[in-house]
Design a protein around this nucleic acid. Structure first.
Lengths: 267, 267
DNA sequence: TACACATGTCTTTTATAAGAGACAAATTGT
DNA sequence: ACAATTTGTCTCTTATAAAAGACATGTGTA
């Protein structure tokens, strides 16, 4: 509890220091925060800790959690007094998949590509302005490059990010990318202009390869999935060891681009 | 705990129309209704219609939908002004699956069983007191017995229902089953005592077979999945033509019960 | 045994979000 | 071309839900 670790407790990089904590919050917003919190912790949590975690009053948290549990969006987990996501969210999620050709077929293509190549493969999309891994299939390598589904990563850190922003105006891109997004995990800092240049390149070549961006050991190959001419709706990507040979990389790129193109047609 | 207050006008099932319409509703409740509405319609819908559908003021609906879209729980669908479930719900749903051994393994067993037998196979659970198909795999028959995932059906209509209530007190069962639940789709009416008798039988035999309950053409075989000794957490079931031979049925039952038992061990 | 600190429930106060309704702009139909 | 709807945004009011906090239990530990 109470790991002082994060200076954090700044829930969102909002405009200005909103009216000091302590102000009354809309119930729905609290719920949204609860969901995000559970999504990041990825485990069941006690209601008291949850209240601390989302910085909400205990009494409020109890009432909200009760509503959500009654509705089936949350469930009391195993031993008794912990909560986590509930069946209803799973059902709604399946509804989303069913209603979404791209995702349904994309998951399939990703699974197939991963089996075909043995490499980790992922389907990525923009999720409220951020890069999100929507589905991933682990591949067969002894060392797994694990990146959790639903993880959100700054756009400039990834090959997919460069493709997802293709076709946007410079201003839009600037809006989407914050200063800190340009700082890589190892401390290096990208120049915004370089990033925008990358985007333009990716757009014209129809794919993007980045090496050692998120970590020093991997290379990322990405190809765009179009929902309409010029509109990049998603990307498929492969995560491979950084020392993968030129030939092997090109070979993988062909397979990747084939599948990404196949996904594009109907959507 | 707290059953004294129970008079509570349950937001439950039932048309329930407007209880003294005009009363103000909590935003969160409206959101829950919106989700349920989308879940039943299974398609994107305009905001105006949505407001009508959940019987909420238009202005309120607009604000709520905007919040939800911003949060990614809903998405504006294809052509422009329709909404449906969003990526976030999918991601949360995947979180649920990940955190839930039973569901993860259950889906696998159901898929395997369906491939092995060629019949439609389902994983079912209680969802806030109602029978719910949590996962289903269609089988290979020319005529598909389709029943949507997430569909909620009165407990007495199903074989699984009899197993899911095994181990509950008579009083609890009476609470869960309403009068109308006892009326089958074809108009026949079950006697509560018969139903409770079925439950006891199912409990001791460790499986349940029903014929022509929901419709006249199918037979349903179900086996319990235990989360603890005596506690039925879910059921696996097979939906087969009603004229399936005795031998064939027994054979399928063996396979089904094997897999259901396998699911039970670790949870 | 007593102490400190969680958990879960209830009551009260007041800041505020839900709702009604007016509007302009876009979309119909005739 | 002209109603007749529907859509999306805004303003204002007041019913009400969020929050504070008291209380009764529970759980751990010194």
């Amino acid at each position: 509890m109470q790991d002082g670790i994060g200076v954090t407790d700044r829930p969102d990089i909002g405009p200005a220091e909103d009216k000091v904590s302590g102000s009354r919050e809309k119930g729905l917003n609290r719920v949204l925060e609860i969901f995000e919190f559970l999504h990041t912790t990825q485990r069941a949590i006690g209601i008291g800790d949850l209240a601390k975690g989302v910085n909400a009053p205990r009494s409020t948290t109890y009432t909200l959690v009760r509503s959500l549990v009654d509705a089936g969006l949350l469930e009391m987990a195993g031993d008794g007094n912990r909560v986590y996501f509930g069946k209803k969210l799973y059902l709604y999620g399946m509804d989303y998949v069913r209603g979404n050709d791209l995702l349904r077929r994309g998951r399939q293509e990703v699974d197939d590509l991963s089996r075909q190549t043995g490499e980790t493969s992922e389907l990525c999309m923009l999720q409220s302005g951020r890069y999100t891994i929507v589905h991933s299939s682990p591949g067969t390598r002894p060392f797994r490059i694990s990146s959790a589904t639903g993880l959100q990563i700054p756009l400039p850190w990834t090959a997919s990010g460069r493709l997802l922003l293709a076709g946007l105006e410079r201003a839009d891109i600037e809006d989407m990318v914050s200063e800190e997004d340009l700082v890589l995990p190892d401390g290096r800092r990208l120049k915004l202009d370089d990033f925008i240049g990358d985007i333009a390149t990716a757009r014209s070549t129809g794919y993007c390869v980045t090496s050692g961006l998120v970590d020093a050991y991997t290379k990322c190959l990405a190809a765009p999935v179009f929902s309409a001419p010029g509109k990049v709706e998603a990307t498929m990507c492969l995560v491979v060891p950084i020392d993968t040979s030129r030939e092997k990389t090109d070979e993988l790129l062909v397979l990747l681009r084939q599948r990404a193109a196949r996904l594009s047609i109907a959507a």
